[in-house]
Simulated assay, not measured.
Amino acid sequence: MRKEVGGEANLGFIVPDAYDAVLEEKKKNLDGCDSNQLIRWFAMRQAKEHDFYYDFQLNEENQLINFFWRDGRMRSDYEAFGDLLIHDTTYRTNKYDMICGPFVGMNLHTQNIMFGVGFILNEKAGTFDWLFNSFLTSMGGKQPVTIMTDQSSAMDKAIREVFPKSRHRLCTWHIRENVVVNIKGVMAKEGFKRQFLLCFEIY
């Protein structure tokens, strides 16, 4: 939209206005019946499993806007393999348009393992702050050595607040994808692409 109108100054609204408008549309889709059923399911699992953890957040209208959960196996896996934590928010659900943010790691066989799952309504710093704090609380306060994410200033801000002892690294896949969009002209220059990709091989 910025490109279409010749710059952000000509939009007639600022970025927070856009976030708020999208959030209002998403809130219309929230189904209290499904939300209540989900929380009951969480409570039932917690009653049966001593190490099941869940957390959720409501808005001022008592609508479910964010939630997080992990089971005992995820906690055990994090204790053993939690040096590296990968968090990705590129997935969306169909009905409620919520953002799925899995917390993933890697075991000794280089297989992906799940440490927890969060669903959030927006990608604001405050939302990530809530989600990361929920994750950290569920894991007894143990911070990862390294967190790998996509490039998000809101996520970066929350990571610095919640995981001050962790090193934040950007995912190489996302870097490559963003390069195609952001520095197309430079990538077209002779020899640059080969040199650029060589950086990933060294890494």
Rank of each mutant, 00 (worst) to 15 (best):
K27A: 07
K28N: 09
K28G: 07
K28M: 10
N29I: 14
L30S: 08
D31Y: 10
D31M: 05
D31W: 07
D31E: 09
G32K: 06
G32I: 06
C33E: 13
C33K: 15
C33D: 12
D34P: 00
D34V: 13
D34T: 14
S35K: 00
S35F: 01
S35L: 04
S35I: 00
N36M: 11
N36K: 09
N36H: 04
I39M: 08
W41L: 13
W41D: 15
F42V: 03
F42G: 00
F42C: 03
F42T: 03
M44Q: 13
R45Q: 12
R45Y: 09
Q46P: 04
Q46R: 13
Q46Y: 09
Q46F: 06
K48Q: 14
K48Y: 10
E49H: 15
E49R: 15
H50P: 14
H50M: 15
H50L: 14
H50Y: 12
D51Q: 14
D51A: 11
D51I: 06
F52M: 05
Y53H: 04
Y53C: 06
Y54P: 02
D55M: 01
D55H: 08
D55P: 00
D55Q: 11
F56V: 05
Q57C: 07
Q57T: 06
Q57N: 11
L58Y: 07
L58D: 05
N59S: 05
N59R: 03
N59Q: 05
N59W: 02
N59K: 01
E60Q: 11
E60R: 12
E61V: 06
E61T: 08
N62H: 10
Q63T: 07
Q63Y: 06
L64I: 08
L64T: 01
I65T: 12
N66A: 03
N66G: 05
F67A: 03
F67R: 00
F67S: 03
W69G: 00
W69Y: 09
R70F: 02
R70M: 09
D71H: 08
D71R: 01
G72A: 13
G72H: 11
G72S: 11
G72M: 12
M74C: 14
M74D: 05
M74P: 00
R75H: 04
R75V: 04
S76A: 13
D77R: 13
